[in-house]
Simulated scan of single mutants.
Amino acid sequence: MAPLIALVGGTALLWLLGLAGVEALDWQTSLRGGLALMFLLTGVVHFLPSWRRDFAAMVPPALPFPYLLVTVTGVLELAGAAALLFPPTAPFAAAGLALLLLAMFPANVSAARRGVPLRGAPATPLPWRTFEQAVFVAAAVLAAL
């Protein structure tokens, strides 16, 4: 839920600042800022010990080196967040992050089906995970345009 709040809240705040007269903040720049906030949040938690263990448990058992995969996805999320804030690279970063989200979705499905908890909370139900992922991918695609 926190990533969705970061995306929507960050985008809305930046968009409202744009409406208030900050010239550089059109809807797409605001969306890119909201995405950057979301991926900064999700990228950082990949490296916090308790989150890291939970993320590694989410990796489907058929994939090798779950901690390495958590590290790689965390680095990609952080790099993508930074690249979203630099106009020449923003469209490429958004497209790359959309692809990353699609690539990570099977891990979300696997975690939901296996009932993998996150920070002690019950596994997020698959319909809600699917909805969130669709929102994130759609936002990244729109930010890439």
Score class of each variant (00 low, 15 high):
Leu7Asp: 05
Leu7Lys: 08
Leu13Pro: 00
Leu16Ile: 12
Leu19Glu: 13
Glu23Ser: 12
Leu25Val: 07
Trp27His: 02
Thr29Phe: 08
Leu31Ile: 07
Gly34Ser: 05
Leu37Val: 14
Met38Leu: 15
Leu40Gln: 01
Leu41Ala: 10
Thr42Met: 08
Thr42Pro: 00
Gly43Met: 07
Val45Gly: 02
Val45Gln: 11
Phe47Ser: 00
Phe47Val: 00
Ser50Ile: 04
Ser50Glu: 09
Asp54Asn: 12
Val59Met: 11
Pro60Thr: 03
Pro60Val: 03
Pro60Phe: 00
Pro64Glu: 06
Pro64Asp: 09
Pro66Ala: 10
Pro66Tyr: 07
Val70Gly: 01
Thr71Ser: 14
Thr73Gly: 02
Val75Ile: 13
Leu76Tyr: 03
Leu78Ala: 04
Leu78Gln: 08
Leu78Phe: 09
Ala79Glu: 11
Ala81Met: 03
Ala81Glu: 01
Ala82Arg: 08
Thr89Pro: 02
Leu97Val: 05
Leu101Ser: 07
Met104His: 00
Met104Thr: 13
Met104Glu: 08
Phe105Pro: 00
Phe105Met: 02
Ala112Phe: 13
Arg114Val: 10
Gly115Phe: 11
Pro117Tyr: 07
Gly120Asp: 09
Ala121Gln: 14
Pro122His: 12
Arg129Ser: 10
Arg129Trp: 03
Phe131Tyr: 15
Glu132Phe: 13
Ala138Phe: 07
Ala139Glu: 06
Ala139Ser: 10
